[in-house]
Design a protein around this nucleic acid. Structure first.
Lengths: 200, 200
DNA sequence: TGGGGCTGAATGTATAGTCATCTCCGCGTC
DNA sequence: GACGCGGAGATGACTATACATTCAGCCCCA
């Protein structure tokens, strides 16, 4: 009577709880420790850990141990924040075509959304993302200064997410926007977005 | 000299290729067949298959076999298209709070984006999505008629993705929109969006 | 002809190892 | 004090096996 839950599910639940209450980077119990604590074989403990790895809650470093994954929010919301990485995982080749880039003067309402003073120019970057040639998404990034440091980078095929991390801005929270619409200031207040928050 | 690729990676690559060229629902080789063909033990073959399962490229049915997963595009782009399911997988409780809903008369440009005749009203649905109480995303759906059939549903906590599927519209492609901006008609042409395509 | 049970096939769970490879850290040497 | 080597510990890859559970289809009997 194993009832409804397999042993490894039980262990995985225990680890999930740990991973949620421990700060990012904390070390989790090793496979050997789990074996002893739960009285299972190593493959069973391993299966539990791998479930968390698949969910990106945890990272394993060979020879070192198992650690709570950093930047949990972007991983939580999933792939669009890192299109390239997501496609790579699936064995597809991510590519992108630059549709447009340059400088615009935003309309007053756009300026408000970007927290810019009216009349100040903004940089625009717009790309068509493809997975093995099939168009999947359009990305458009409007950023006051940061994009300037990206213009000229290897943007045709690269990952915006990585690029943003290189210059020290990790996307924090995301606003998923079904059907295009401006995100009013009210939304950002509800989400507690900081000035560096990138809005999706 | 295993070189750079583990046996199970090799098998996984082979299966990925199969899964991509076969139509959805096709049966893939069983674990036993993979064992024989690649000369590995069952646990190794299994590891390869489970990699594809984690990527949602494949579904396994106990007692039946392994099959190419249906509706590949929404799964491909990941979670925001199905927030509830994504959170469930991570052991979190997805909830949502209705921010606003009702009828609006879109501005001319909004009407164009929705492919509506000017002056015709549209239904708006706007929700704050939370994972275990932490606000994660704002969803806003503008649809001419379909949303009407959702108003009154169990929308406070439910899944939009599921709801859309119930009434026969499966989200097809997605436009990921970094920083809020309207998606001009040009974008949808580039992506080849149909009238039922839901824009993210 | 219809229903029911049997059975083979397939996946799910779990055990108990082996060998490889990597990382971290301490200890000894220079 | 700096450097390097080595060992302990950790994950990665893989094997061989056993039993449980579920599904689907076939055959037989009524």
């Amino acid at each position: 009577m194993t009832r409804n839950r397999a042993r490894y599910e039980e262990i995985a639940a225990h680890l999930r709880a740990l991973a949620r209450e421990l700060p990012a980077g904390s070390r989790l119990p090793s496979e050997a420790e789990l074996c002893e604590r739960f009285g299972v074989s190593r493959m069973t403990a391993r299966q539990a850990v791998q479930q968390l790895v698949a969910d990106r809650l945890v990272e394993r470093r060979r020879g070192a141990g198992t650690f709570v994954a950093p930047d949990r929010v972007p991983r939580l919301l999933g792939s669009p924040l890192s299109f390239s990485a997501s496609m790579r995982r699936r064995g597809l080749t991510a590519s992108s075509r630059l549709i447009d880039r340059g400088r615009i003067v935003p309309t007053p309402s756009e300026a408000a959304a970007l927290r810019l003073a009216p009349g100040v120019g903004a940089y625009v970057l717009e790309r068509l993302r493809r997975a093995d040639g099939t168009p999947m998404a359009i990305e458009r990034v409007d950023r006051p200064r940061e994009v300037a440091e990206l213009l000229g980078d290897d943007i045709e095929t690269g990952s915006l997410h990585d690029a943003f991390e290189r210059i020290g801005h990790t996307p924090s929270r995301a606003v998923a926007h079904v059907t295009a619409q401006r995100a009013p200031a009210e939304h950002r207040r509800l989400l507690g977005l900081g000035a560096n928050g990138i809005v999706l």
